[in-house]
Nucleic acid binder design. Structure first.
Length: 717
DNA sequence: AAAAAAT
């Protein structure tokens, strides 16, 4: 217990002190400094305390660009971008347009169009209508950016007006951009959301001095920008994870939150982080790298395991930074690094990245982490699974990022294995542990069906299912006419996601379905980034309501309206299964998951049966029989040595928690399940030890990868 | 033996 209460007595005031305002006393533990909550006109802290902020002579304020003065090269680039977008016909804008019109591309993911067009994609998504369609890209933010830069270039800090320093006031509206960012919000987020189910989701917070949770967004003081963007995104009510994480993060605590992506997690960290940045205003950046042109120093860094997830988080961040001077950026591999750097040079306050590309950017001297005050590791457990730990540690520990305690660090894993606990030990300071039950996945939101299908029958069985779904497809007469397929109406209400185990299998199955006239596309890791994005887009939009996917799409992706997940091939471990079926039943909607089971899948039968029972799903007799048969042969339960969940908890704990409806309080471990398995984890006391009950013996759910006694794994071993 | 991720 390293913290006395006084330690926790610092509220927002300390945040601001931490944000480059060293050497100034705050006015007492919980004094007048609570972010202007006291009443009267809201004054952002950085303006209330202007006198304290005067930068030393050798520093200049650079909200957007450290080098401040933009050199000729960059300006040339800038103008090229504008021309391209305005002109429409030439440059990547033209390609972009073509891509949408080209029928083959449109529904098959544009596989033939190889040129890397991430730049084009960026232009479109970022500035939206600002440019391409209606002439010059007069994005208001852009205009503001220029003004900021001119303020910077003189290095005369005092001349900057309050107006310019104040990031808490919204910029003028931009209706085109607004439409782009928020047009989908209403229909998508509100249709069929089961908020009653939401309220049932158990949540538990553990740690010292836990701030009160909220029940409405109105319960916390948020800047006007955030409030308006929340309402435009139609986030009427906070989700469970938001109810807790928002006040925690706003009160400057480190956080370990075990929650799924569909739980509203992304907004749960973006809202409070961006809000703090808006309140804080520009940060003074020491120009310690005069030769590094356009080096950017983001204030917030979000790391995500996959490119698609990074893109998704970035898209969300654009909503919450609409009308703000704060500019989000995203970088990831597989896309044009030059285009990404160019985009960054326009300013980068919140950076979303996959680890590899970020490390690359750091090496190139284009990104500095010296001023990162908010660090988020999204899907942290998966990043470790994927072997990112060295890169994460390199980024966090070996590159000038403010150390633990001087930045705010938030980790969002889905599970809490030992590796994550170790990382928490190193990265987090006096953190709050937040456990949120699954929103969908194993809950009753998803109907899980297991059917016995022999390997040879899988395809025809799949066709039966798709036929029953009533999808529009091409007649035999024109099934080879790709143009005709484009004419199919979007069927966004009945998206079907088909998982296979191998990339080859994905290709083959897509081809098979295509030959049968289905509007299908596919995604896997051997596709170019462009193809992956296109596939996801046409799937989301309903243009291709059937998507064949490998594990690349299993986790984190939030695609509304996935009605049906089909495990054409069951995965070999239950965790993967849980993630896959979690693509449906998002945000409280109902979903269906059908899995083809045969001899190849015996290895996971017991975990599967157990999961079905705990989720109160129908359990086929034959499956039960196989399970008990396999138990007879001697199983893997109780063996030690599980790597991924050693000592910690696996998904089982969530499943238990789902049903136990643990109280929303902190407390000592309670025997008998529920969140005592989290709570008992007592992250502050016991990082390395097991939690008792789940670390060994017959209760050891540690060994997900072990194969069953009589079965083989998917590969036939 | 699969998949993911920087080139």
């Amino acid at each position: 217990m390293s913290n006395v209460p006084a330690h926790n007595g610092v509220g927002l005031e300390q945040q601001f002190a931490g944000l480059g305002l060293e050497g100034r006393d705050h006015t007492g533990p919980r004094g007048g400094g609570r972010g202007g909550r006291g009443g009267g006109r809201y004054i952002p802290p950085h303006l209330r305390n202007r006198l304290d902020e005067c930068p030393p002579d050798n520093e200049e304020i650079s909200s957007l660009n450290v080098s401040g003065r933009r050199n000729g090269d960059v300006q040339t680039n800038t103008f090229q971008r504008r021309d391209n977008r305005g002109g429409g016909a030439g440059g990547y804008r033209g390609n972009d347009g073509n891509r949408f019109r080209e029928p083959d591309d449109r529904w098959r993911g544009g596989r033939d169009n190889r040129s890397d067009n991430r730049g084009a994609y960026d232009d479109r998504s970022r500035d939206g209508g600002g440019g391409g369609i209606n002439g010059p890209p007069r994005n208001n933010r852009w205009v503001e950016d220029e003004r900021d830069r001119s303020g910077v270039s003189g290095s005369r800090w005092q001349e900057r007006s309050n107006q310019q320093d104040d990031w808490s006031q919204p910029l003028a509206r931009n209706e085109v951009l607004e439409a782009e960012l928020f047009s989908n919000s209403g229909t998508v987020s509100n249709s069929g959301i089961n908020f009653d189910k939401y309220d049932d989701i158990p949540v538990e917070a553990t740690g010292e001095d836990i701030p009160a949770s909220i029940s409405s967004f109105a319960d916390i003081k948020l800047t006007e920008i955030i409030r308006q963007n929340i309402s435009m995104a139609r986030y009427d009510r906070p989700t469970p994870v938001q109810k807790y994480a928002l006040p925690f993060i706003l009160s400057k605590r480190d956080l370990m939150a075990c929650a799924q992506t569909g739980s509203g997690k992304t907004a749960a960290f973006l809202v409070p982080i961006l809000n703090q940045i808006y309140e804080q205003g520009p940060v003074q950046v020491k120009n310690n790298n005069p030769r590094g042109r356009n080096k950017q120093y983001p204030l917030a860094l979000v790391l995500a395991p996959t490119r698609e997830l990074a893109t998704q988080i970035y898209d969300e961040s654009r909503k919450f930074s609409y009308r703000a001077k704060v500019r989000p950026c995203v970088v990831y591999g597989g896309a044009d690094v030059v285009a990404q750097m160019r985009d960054q040079s326009r300013g980068c306050h919140l950076l979303v990245a996959t680890p590899g590309r970020l490390a690359d950017m750091i090496d190139r001297g284009k990104v500095g982490l010296d001023y990162v005050k908010f660090l988020v590791l999204d899907e942290a457990d998966r990043m470790l699974d994927m072997g990112f730990e060295p890169q994460i540690r390199r980024i966090v520990e070996e590159d000038n990022m403010p150390p633990t305690g001087r930045r705010q660090t938030l980790m969002f894993p889905a599970t809490f294995p030992k590796e994550i606990q170790r990382l928490a030990q190193d990265f987090l300071d006096n953190y709050i542990f937040l456990a949120v039950g699954r929103v969908g996945s194993t809950s009753e939101n998803i109907t899980q069906k297991i059917v016995w299908v022999a390997e040879d029958d899988k395809r025809s069985f799949l066709l039966d299912i798709l036929n029953a779904a009533g999808l529009d497809r091409l007649s035999n007469a024109n099934k080879d006419d790709k143009l005709a397929i484009v004419a199919l109406p979007p069927q966004e209400e009945s998206l079907t996601l088909v998982f296979v185990e191998t990339k080859k299998g994905a290709d083959a199955l897509e081809e098979f379905l295509y030959r049968h006239g289905y509007p299908v596309t596919s995604i896997h890791g051997d596709r170019s980034q462009r193809e992956r994005e296109d596939a996801l887009r046409v799937f989301r939009s309903g243009q291709c309501p059937v998507l064949v996917a490998t594990a690349v799409a299993a986790r984190g992706l939030d695609i509304p309206h996935v009605k049906h997940v089909i495990n054409f091939d069951l995965p070999s471990d239950i965790e993967e299964y849980v993630h896959r079926i979690g693509r449906t039943g998002r945000m409280g909607n109902l979903g269906l998951a059908t899995s083809f089971f045969n001899d190849k899948n015996r290895n996971m039968v017991r975990d599967l049966v157990e999961l079905l029972q705990e989720a109160q799903q129908e359990l086929p007799k034959w499956l039960e029989a196989i399970a008990s048969e396999s138990r007879w042969g001697g199983g893997t339960r109780g063996r030690t040595g599980g790597k991924r969940f050693g000592g910690g908890f696996g998904s089982r704990d969530y499943r238990q928690a789902d049903r136990s409806k643990a109280s929303h309080t902190t407390g000592p471990a309670r025997p008998g399940g529920g969140f005592s398995n989290f709570g008992g984890a007592a992250p502050h006391f016991n990082h390395y030890g097991g939690y008792g009950g789940f670390s060994g013996g017959n209760s050891g759910y540690n060994n997900y990868n072990a194969s069953g006694a009589s079965g083989t794994d998917w590969w036939g071993n």
